[in-house]
Design a binder for these strands. Structure first.
Lengths: 143, 143
DNA sequence: TCTGGCCTTGACGTCAGGGTCAAGGTCTAC
DNA sequence: GTAGACCTTGACCCTGACGTCAAGGCCAGA
């Protein structure tokens, strides 16, 4: 099959396939007229790449899986190098989740605190004997 | 103070400060010879930006905080626009954490499964009556 | 006066993962 | 024989937040 058909069947674009080829990730054979030629096996490799990418793997990280499949293994993650990538990714994910959770806590705390401060400010503003309102912008010049 | 000193005191670079100025985020006054001139207030604004950035806020998202400070408020998050950014960021963080957690589960499952498969394969390989080993690569031609 | 350090603007590079266009070759159907 | 769909390479564009380099201005100390 040619590049357009493969792209369509895999739900991607021809540009992407040429890009993968330029990285040596998914080389293509050529027909007599120079057109790229792919088979069902290439579709499997490509699906492996796209699946991993959807999980947030970088393209370079998908390489061991693709080479594992290409060397005849039934699954891309049958090889030690792929398992190593899985483990690295798990550690990365754990660290990232922990970092984001810590930030989430801090931002949540900041928001709650700032909301309390604002509520106090507004309460003071509605009270007739409160502090002078902060008329920052758009105060009519006549007043 | 000049750009080099501000950069050093804020723990960033002169390039970064020029970049912020090009965005209109942290404009600088100029001295007679054209050098940028900053004061302690600018340092506060810059610190606000850097703190938010460390939390993963994009530069544009820090703008309400900076403008809030610049308009005389005691804290960058005293203004409604800043609170709105906080809330948006919280939602973003929650979604991101949820997404990463789901992926983490799937990758963890995949890893465990692949490890089991490999263990079985190796057990079969050591057992003399096992299934034929997958001699994928480097099988000597004589054998 | 010279040297070294700071400053200026402008322009290009980086990283990933492609999008988009141009100019042209190929193939199929009518 | 020609229109239209497909293919080719090459080249430039995009995002974000800067890094890096070039070529030159300004200023303080020896």
């Amino acid at each position: 099959m040619r590049i357009g058909e493969l792209a369509e069947r895999a739900g991607t674009t021809t540009r992407t396939l040429r890009y993968y080829e330029s990285l040596g990730l998914l080389p293509a054979r050529r027909t007599g007229n120079g057109y790229r030629s792919y088979d069902e096996e290439d579709l499997r490799l490509l699906q492996q790449i796209r699946t991993l990418r959807d999980f947030g793997f970088e393209l370079e990280e998908t390489r061991p899986f693709v080479e594992c499949l290409r060397s005849g293994h039934p699954a891309g993650d049958s090889c030690p190098a792929s398992l190593e990538v899985y483990r690295r990714k798990l550690a990365e994910l754990d660290e990232c989740i922990a970092r984001l959770s810590a930030i989430r806590e801090r931002v949540g705390t900041q928001l709650a605190q700032a909301e309390r401060a604002r509520a106090e400010l507004e309460a003071a503003a509605t009270a007739p004997e409160g502090a002078p309102e902060p008329r920052c912008e758009l105060t009519p010049p006549g007043q």
